[in-house]
Design a protein around this nucleic acid. Structure first.
Lengths: 339, 339
DNA sequence: CTGAAAGCGCTTACAG
DNA sequence: CTGAAAGCGCTTACAG
């Protein structure tokens, strides 16, 4: 990073720093000939404005803060990619921070963003999110929550339609002729998990009021799915189908079944949620709910940019999901892959 | 973000801003009682220092810049995770930027980091990297390249031992009894791809001097692997084994074989490179080379932090790889999974 | 269209 | 141990 400053450019171009600033920022009211001199000088010196100085005086950082619970795995990768896509289209930077699932760290991460970002994208999948955020987020500061419970104040929230996805899956399983449908739930303090469970319960009660819900506790990772699968096999009453709250648990369950010689879907149907890349590669391919994560990130970023510009009212909405029927749910497919 | 400044704290604590600064930054030479007053005031006002202002006067941003060719997929996700792990341990922030595989954008991304970061982590897997970077990176600015060709100057480079990994794989395939080993190469302008190809060629020439190398062009994605697989099947001389320069191409190849009813490894052995999560789930599980990407990111970050502190001389090194033998290479395994 | 000057919020020698 | 002041590199009314 060269330490050539606006002063150097001004000297070479023989104008004041004010004029350099105006010329470089395209402020229009600069004589053609002067502007050219400034540009030439800037180029010659390989001048790049000093971001911190600019931020300090302009009150704009040209960067968006992204505060996530973790950075690991495809979900966050896709989310960041979606955010990045729209940010760069607006020449905005991304300050990324993970709080490693630790609520305290989340507060620190939020605080550390001050003076660094023009707005905040935060994902906080805790049930107690509102109070957590209330302490660290000024209501007046542009922010949009991702996949989180609605804040107390009017903070915008963008999320996946977890409830709708779970509803669609249960409807599908029931339509495929399954009656006893067990559910492997995600962590109890996770908002996504909570919504998916709610969708399962509501739909089962609606479609098959006489069949009791059956919920096994999981925590979204493969091992817990495996455990749940074994418990199911060991129980006196095997269900017709198992709906796992996410694909990783469904895979764990699938392996448990495979080890026990239980055939999916012939002996037991299986479905997941998320449509991770693995889902279509395992055998049998996994019926699941697709969630367009990049789209979620992109929409959140767009909304935030509007908020920063003072254009939009904070409004919450939801990204719709898509049922992806593959072999594991025991439904006969028309053509292999419809576009 | 509250707009309470150091002045407010000074007023409430009844001291000068200089004292507030010293107290909050732990400069020691502040009276116990005064320090307490300052802390109390800061807490009461929920004061958070303004990062841009601090950076401007202290010449330190407490953030590391990360400039990557892309943000998509597991590799970058893992890399960022590794970097994040060490950065946060030092309370450093991460400014992440993707240049979307576009060399021009890379220059812009690099330039935009000025005044925002204390050091730069850049991955530039182009063969022409040195000249590209020379234009935008001041030699005096702390930077470490990741998985890139060595810079002209003394810039530190950290990378994966692609060459060594390819050597190990060819040795393994030969030891398993395969002679005609085809190679599906990655993009010609990609440095990783280049090194892997070199490892293949050298080792084949060394171990089986009479067998000609056979290289098909790919571009690291599944489709190109599929294409190469079909070409191989259509050719008059089928090889005994196929070594793809990365797992995605190996998977594409595997699907091409499966479609054609060619059994792996009975009819043809197959191996990849990277050990992506899918590798162990496909059937047959894929023999591949594991690369610890998070470790790569972590080591790069550590090195950069030392450079920023002026502690280390820039030195280049390489992350070793590990041969993961699974079914696809046609070797009989001892126990299923050795730890 | 252009310049001199104030100010953004901090840190850090320099005095005392 | 503490304060007054300069300065970090920019932007932006305010004059002209």
């Amino acid at each position: 990073m060269p330490s050539v400053t606006i002063k150097d450019v001004a000297r070479v171009a023989q104008v004041s720093v004010a004029t350099v600033s105006r010329a470089l920022n395209g402020h229009g009211n600069v004589a053609e000939e002067v502007r050219n001199r400034v540009f030439a000088a800037a180029k010659e010196l390989r001048y790049t404005p000093h971001a911190a100085a600019r931020s300090l005086s302009s009150r704009r950082t040209q960067t968006l803060g992204v505060v996530l619970p973790d950075l690991h795995g495809e979900f966050f990768s896709e989310l960041i990619r979606g955010i990045d896509q729209v940010a760069r289209a607006q020449r905005l930077h991304l300050l990324v921070s993970s709080y490693h699932g630790n609520p305290e760290e989340q507060g620190a991460a939020l605080g550390a963003m001050r003076g660094r970002v023009d707005g905040l994208l935060v994902m906080s999948p805790f049930v107690e999110t509102p109070s957590l955020l209330g302490e660290h987020l000024e209501p007046s500061f542009p922010a949009v929550l991702i996949n989180s419970q609605a804040g107390l104040d009017g903070t915008a929230v963008l999320g996946v339609d977890n409830y709708g996805g779970a509803v669609a899956m249960v409807e599908h399983l029931v339509a495929a002729g399954h009656r006893h449908i067990a559910f492997i739930a995600g962590p109890t303090d996770n908002f996504d998990a909570h919504e998916r469970l709610r969708g399962y319960r509501d739909t089962l009660a609606r479609l098959l009021p006489d069949v009791p819900a059956r919920v096994l506790q999981g925590d979204f990772d493969e091992a817990s799915g495996h455990r749940a699968g074994r418990d199911l096999l060991a129980s006196s009453q095997r269900p017709d189908a198992v709906f796992a709250a996410n694909d990783m648990m469904a895979l764990g369950c699938l392996f448990a079944f495979a080890q026990a010689g239980v055939n999916v879907p012939a002996d037991m149907a299986l479905a997941g949620f998320d449509d991770i890349p693995l889902a279509r590669y395992v055998h049998p391919a996994l019926t699941t709910i697709r969630v367009n994560i990049a789209e979620l990130g992109a929409r959140a970023a767009r909304l935030l940019i509007e908020l920063v510009a003072g254009e939009a009212a904070s409004e919450s909405s939801v990204i719709s999901t898509e049922l992806i029927v593959r072999e594991s749910s025991g439904t006969r497919l028309p053509p292999p892959r419809s576009p």
